[in-house]
Design a protein around this nucleic acid. Structure first.
Lengths: 232, 232
DNA sequence: TCATACCAACTTCCATGGAAGCTGCAATGG
DNA sequence: CCATTGCAGCTTCCATGGAAGTTGGTATGA
């Protein structure tokens, strides 16, 4: 007997993600990449066909995406992929400004060893950004800087909120890359935030972080307006 | 013929809420009222029995509540009603401080007629609070003030974020009522925010709003610690 | 006595089909 | 010609049952 290989209790790492998880990730990816144009209306049936599951996981994934603001479920009608207006972008930036500003201030209030350690990490990302060869690499390092900033601040809810609004803005980011804003100006601004953190000055950190994101917002919004983009 | 009453296309108002909606509301209500003690583990089957539906609407409602942070779905094990630690309360207050501060500043930046109109509404709530006979009425007026503040600020995402964290904190509020913090101190602080808005001073509005919520936080956290409450 | 293997009772996960609602178009009646 | 009605084809909503994973208690062995 016992020919059959006995499975372990915890079979090597975590078990495969559920179909809901897969459908959620795939659907979200498709939305962010604008494979589904904003405003399009889909049915669970066709999505199930596309992702190779039944309708149930699709439906549950849609519920999650609706909670995040990426789609709207129209009862008895279908699933609507939400379109973002420039107004939405503005709202999202204001959330980012409020949260990141406080995150920077919180870090600046930490005891010196901790905040210096964080500052070092932030500085490394900024250096990586400065040294980056192409726009994409720079953009990636930029994102890493901001992610690190909010994850290090000691308030997990800040990170959650930013992750949500970022996923809303992600589709717009795809367009942004094509517009190629002058990301170089970010480097000294990042350094200003880092300096305020090192100095342990929460107010200055707050102001620097807000000024940085505010500048980016003020640069991007007219850009979008100029290109006459009504939605994303 | 035609004895049967023909239904209109739009049958008088909106149709009945879906079972998911009902289950969601009922489940959330039960959690907030602490009918389900925090940390308890439930099964979809028993909830379905309690709310008179099948397991599907319960499951979907649970997904929504999980997204809001009120429960966690443990795969193949059940639904866990999340417990809040004092640390969570602190985090939630910091989100409130960041968002409400910016909301107040945004209102103060509006053109005079608009911000005066909003100030008047806020003042009315504050007056209602001052005149309230019992603690509960005062508490209600207080909540109305803060709700109005964030809904009037012109950024719908601010309101959404606050609604989410408030629903997380709602269960703790139930305990708070029993502790009866001295809510009277809020009245002059509300008036300070209103004055800053009337004066059109965004920085002062920001500082006033933050100071108000910060004071409440600094009052409540030790209170919870003193009573040795580990979770809610 | 203690550690291990096993099993029965639980749980969610997911597919599926019928019920109910929405929409656009064609047929009908003025 | 226009308004109304009826219907066909679509959609989600929800109940249900089998598949598969988890757990705690019990029997078994050293």
């Amino acid at each position: 007997m016992a020919i059959a290989v006995r499975r372990r209790r915890k079979p090597a790492g975590k078990s495969r993600p559920s179909l809901v998880e897969q459908a959620y990730a795939a659907f979200k990816e498709a939305i962010v990449r604008a494979e589904f144009p904003p405003g399009i209306q889909l049915s669970a049936q066709e999505l199930a066909l596309r992702f190779g599951t039944s309708r149930t996981p699709i439906h549950e994934a849609s519920l999650r995406l609706q909670e995040e603001g990426l789609v709207r479920i129209l009862p008895k009608k279908g699933i609507l992929v939400c379109a973002l207006s420039p107004e939405d972008i503005r709202e999202i930036y204001e959330v980012i400004i409020a949260i990141e500003g406080d995150a920077a201030a919180r870090i600046a209030r930490m005891p010196e060893p901790e905040r210096l350690a964080i500052a070092e990490q932030l500085d490394a990302e900024t250096a990586r950004m400065e040294a980056a060869a192409d726009f994409e690499a720079r953009s990636l390092a930029d994102m890493a800087f901001h992610t690190r900033l909010v994850e290090a601040c000691g308030n997990a809810r800040f990170a959650t909120i930013l992750k949500t609004v970022n996923s809303q803005a992600a589709r717009a980011q795809v367009f942004m890359v094509q517009l190629r804003p002058n990301i170089e100006r970010s480097v000294p601004e990042h350094r200003a935030i880092i300096a305020a953190i090192c100095a342990g000055d929460p107010d200055l950190a707050q102001v620097s972080a807000r000024a940085h994101r505010g500048r980016v917002r003020d640069e991007i919004l007219p850009m979008l307006a100029r290109f006459g983009l009504r939605h994303f």
